[in-house]
Design a protein around this nucleic acid. Structure first.
Lengths: 210, 210
DNA sequence: ACTTGATTCATACGACTGTTTGAATTATAC
DNA sequence: GTATAATTCAAACAGTCGTATGAATCAAGT
């Protein structure tokens, strides 16, 4: 099973991931994190320099791998057809991230990443541009090719919508639970990916209004 | 022009609206608010009892009117056709909220509402259920009728998606600006409503996968 | 065995947090 | 004009915040 992390840095990362996901970035203190990780308060600054440094380390720890899979699936989609099928591009974009939810740790990561997107926009943009520019570039290009006929500006808007909906659906689905009177709960990653790909691809293909 | 608010309570509401929108709920202190409003710190507790009470008052101040317009437009859509057209229902759902952005104050309100949705899910759900149950009920019913053939659970998911994308697009579009290298900026409310209705309606109608 | 560098520790800094109090002030009613 | 209520005020409460420091402990290499 999930063996307890051994090193101090890993214990901090695991605890922070969980707490950030649950309570948000701004509502989680470094003291809560070090308490949950059973390490000394100063360890965070020794290993990560600052709270922002900790967030960056958290994102790099798992997003690097997810983005690798994203590009791998995008390669496959682009090899299979010219231009690539929109559904396949969308699947490559959302699937590997949603699939993080297959493990409890990954679920925490996904929710905390969504928190960073909305609570700390500036930091998130900066990290994406610094560490994953290729992923951004490749998907912009792929969406453009997969949805021919759309003006460039419209493509960017629809990618923006897709990112937003992905982040929204990674966060706690308390809204969904509340307004379905508890009947509908978060489903498994495969089902969520299916729903997202279906919804987003259809939205992406929506006709332009006059 | 925008005359400066006269009463203490209004000055607090205006300042809080702006600061919450700009920096988020958790990153805005009551002292920042009272300083911006040029009122005494204790005035917040005198008029609103607590920070959560202030948030609730902020939401009620403008959301009540927006929801009234929503239901008005929904009435029109349901009178025009049976079942109502999905595009019209969607327009009634997103339009009045996006239109808040026509005034600077409304822009602040919309962005702060989106913040509450993501930063304080529990509080938002509670307020909606306490103050606007009819709006929730009516739109659930309308979406069900406008998209016949979809299972009830799927309807709830797609409403959930629609709410999420609406909130995402109300927040600062820093992502969009950054990844378009500044070329694409937030457009006017009418254009955003058009884009949202088009994208969301198409997504809502997406075929069910096996 | 001893040095060197990495890591952990308790402790403190100054600033900021939401909330409360009771007195001072202002407005309203008679 | 005076009593009554509504509002504003300065000041403080008891905590928490992110960050920093320097000594203590640990591990590795020679």
């Amino acid at each position: 099973m999930n063996q307890v992390a051994t090193t101090t840095a890993e214990r901090i990362l695991d605890a922070a991931e969980h707490l950030f996901a649950e309570n948000g970035i701004g509502n989680t203190s470094l003291r809560q994190i070090t308490a949950a990780a059973s390490v000394n308060l100063a360890a965070i600054h020794y290993h990560f320099r600052s709270k922002d440094g900790l967030i960056e380390a958290l994102l790099l720890r798992r997003l690097a791998e997810a983005n690798r899979v994203r590009l791998e699936q995008l390669d496959a989609a682009e090899s299979a057809a010219h231009p690539p099928a929109l559904e396949k591009v969308m699947h490559a974009f959302v699937g590997p991230v949603v699939d993080l939810g297959k493990s409890p740790r990954g679920t925490h990561f996904a929710r905390m990443m969504a928190r960073v997107h909305t609570e700390r926009e500036g930091l998130m943009v900066e990290i994406l541009q610094r560490h994953f520019p290729e992923m951004v570039r490749r998907f912009k290009q792929a969406f453009r090719r997969a949805a021919p006929g759309l003006p460039p500006e419209e493509i960017l808007w629809r990618i923006h919508f897709s990112v937003g909906l992905l982040m929204w659906s990674l966060q706690s689905s308390r809204h969904l639970e509340a307004f379905s009177d508890g009947r509908v709960r978060q489903s498994n990653p495969a089902a969520l990916t299916r729903r997202l790909v279906s919804f987003l691809s259809a939205g992406f293909r929506a006709p332009l209004e006059s």
